[in-house]
């Protein structure tokens, strides 16, 4: 579904790579947490999956397509298979909940009939029925994130990328959002979530990929935020002492 082959990403003007020789495979239907300190490369990985950036070296395959080979003209069509959720929701403040979700479908050319069927369905699924005509500023943070999730999944993408979706929310609301993401995952959508929230990672016991200084230092199924199992030994990974946070 998603495969990173020895991917390195160096941003212009910096010597230290944001991602350093990362290889990773995510299978269809998986739920993956990406954990690590700020600047460890989580967001860079998500940007690369979205093809918002190109890797400096290495190749990335998403949904069977080599991202290095997708022409920039085709990128918009590729992105229609992905849903994205951010920490800051990114809703349009002058549009209602319904219009925010419908906007996604309008701009990719869906018919009015389809929109009027799909949007109420997805709003009910995220638990926002009855709030379709509210504006974002009339909603709580948790509700706004539900709108953002509704917008991300209304087009039934095969992959949902979430960049710290609970970063601005209190623990109870966060758990509500996580329940929603688990349900989306249970319906067959692959979910990749970057997070700092140890409580969530520990409770869900899913696959955890930990990044330190742009390298994958742990890839553990059913893991917690901090490793509890005996770490998998990967002889190919050697971390310089200076890069391990104390």
């Amino acid at each position: 579904m998603i495969r990173f082959d020895e991917v390195t990403k160096v941003y212009r003007g910096t010597a230290k790579p944001a991602l350093n020789n990362v290889s990773l495979e995510v299978l269809s239907g998986e739920f993956v947490f990406m954990v690590g300190a700020s600047g460890s490369g989580k967001s860079s990985m998500l940007r690369l999956v979205l093809k918002e950036d190109r890797p400096s070296s290495g190749s990335i395959h998403v949904l069977g397509q080599d991202l290095n080979r997708i022409s920039s003209r085709k990128v918009p069509y590729f992105r229609r298979n992905l849903g994205v959720v951010f920490q800051d929701f990114r809703l349009l403040p002058n549009k209602t909940v319904f219009a925010n979700v419908a906007f996604t479908l309008q701009v990719i050319g869906k018919s009015k009939g389809f929109i009027h069927e799909a949007v109420p369905d997805v709003l009910a699924m995220v638990g926002l029925d009855g709030k379709a005509e509210r504006f974002p500023h009339e909603l709580s943070g948790g509700e706004q994130q539900r709108v953002a999730i509704a917008r991300a999944v209304v087009n039934k993408p095969s992959i949902l990328l979430a960049d710290e979706p609970t970063g601005n929310l209190d623990p109870t609301t966060s758990m509500g959002i996580m329940t929603l993401l688990e349900r989306i995952n249970a319906n067959g959508t692959t979910v990749i979530m970057a997070t700092h929230d140890a409580g969530i990672v520990d409770r869900l016991q899913r696959r955890v990929v930990e990044l330190v200084g742009g390298r994958v230092v742990r890839d553990e199924r059913g893991g917690g935020y901090v490793t509890q199992a005996v770490p998998q030994v990967r002889p190919d990974i050697v971390i310089p002492a200076a890069e391990i946070p104390r």
Binding site: Y77, R79, R80, F103, T104, V107, I108, R151, N155
Partner: peptide, 9 residues
């Protein structure tokens, strides 16, 4: 948002 959800150029 348009770019994110795949609106064509």
């Amino acid at each position: 948002i348009m770019r994110l959800v795949g609106a064509s150029n």
